[in-house]
């Protein structure tokens, strides 16, 4: 082969690799040919990107990844990444795996969920709860204006709380970077039975990320119960709010938890925290609501 023929052969192989892949023999041939043309060393990558762009030009994702498959991949990631946990944090965020979900969620509840039947009408509860929020906010506002927490985004400090460098810092970075920040304070779910839970929720639709922060949230016995976050979305059936993840409170003081929405959140209308069995549940009950935060529109 002369030089022109060699280059054409190399380009044919590069093209074929980008479009439909090569067998081992052709791959070896390409490798040898590329040795003569250093200017084409990035050709494999750029042609593969080009082929991907052409594929995407006529392709629209039409399915969400199955929840059980997401759980498997998250479990894989836990094994793949071995970064150390944040020191000093007082809550441990535990992404729920498929196995955990199956082991703790009562079968009848799961079956109801699949059938679209809720054991509890979230919508009815939401309306009733929303009616209480105005009072709760009125009670809340004087405290928040006195606190630096909500005025300058500084983490609240208490004499007994350990420092929160990891999650607190992550939250600060999030607050600085979120282009569409939503922020709301926790309010009493039932003003007749005040729990005095303070704190707030911050969320960004653009980043699909957020944090919840609590003070006075009681320590839970992890062997018997856990806290679970729910996200109500205007585009989601009110009877089936989005699971925002489960978490435990290990010590008194301030706690910060990253939100782990299991589905894409499009227009959040309310966040709620319930107390559930370890591992969380698929469908909750109004009696289990600990606190709520309704997003003002």
């Amino acid at each position: 082969m002369n030089d022109l023929e060699r280059q054409e052969k190399m380009l044919d192989l590069l093209t074929e690799k980008a479009i439909s892949g090569l067998d081992e023999q052709s791959q070896q041939e390409l490798k040898e040919l590329l040795n003569n043309y250093p200017e084409w060393h990035d050709g494999e990558e750029t042609l593969a990107l080009t082929a991907a762009a052409i594929k995407l030009s006529a392709f629209t994702p039409d399915e969400e990844i199955p929840v059980h498959l997401s759980a498997k991949i998250l479990a894989q990631s836990e094994r793949y990444f071995s970064t150390s946990e944040n020191e000093g944090k007082v809550v441990e965020f535990r992404p729920r795996t498929e196995k955990q979900t199956e082991s703790v969620a009562p079968a009848p509840v799961v079956a109801d969920s699949k059938a679209g039947i809720s054991v509890w009408n979230w919508a009815g509860w939401a309306i009733a709860a929303a009616a209480c929020i105005a009072l709760a906010i009125n009670l809340w506002l004087p405290r928040t204006t006195e606190s630096p927490v909500l005025t300058n985004n500084q983490a609240p400090s208490t004499p007994t709380a350990p420092p929160l460098p990891g999650l607190s810092e992550q939250r600060q970075q999030f607050l600085a970077s979120a282009p569409d920040l939503v922020q709301e304070n926790w309010a009493e779910a039932n003003p007749k039975e005040p729990r005095n839970i303070e704190g707030d929720i911050v969320w960004s639709n653009a980043l699909q990320k957020g944090f919840v922060r609590f003070r006075n949230l009681p320590v839970n016995d992890k062997t018997r119960e856990t806290y679970q976050l729910w996200i109500f979305d205007a585009n989601q059936n009110e009877k089936t709010p989005i699971d925002g993840g489960v978490f435990d409170v290990d010590a008194n003081g301030d706690v910060i938890v990253p939100i782990n929405a299991k589905l894409k959140v499009q227009k959040p209308t309310m966040f709620a925290v319930t107390k559930e069995k370890p591992g969380g549940v698929v469908v909750s009950d109004p009696k289990r609501v600990v606190t709520i935060a309704k997003i003002e529109t």
Binding site: E63, E64, I73, E78, F81, T83, Q208
Partner: peptide
């Protein structure tokens, strides 16, 4: 950089794309 929370974001943003490609 080893940020494990980014894995969740990656799944959230690109899970549908990868799954749809794989299904096809």
């Amino acid at each position: 950089s080893g940020d494990k929370t980014a894995v969740q974001d990656c799944l959230k943003f690109y899970g549908g794309l990868v799954w749809s490609l794989a299904r096809k």
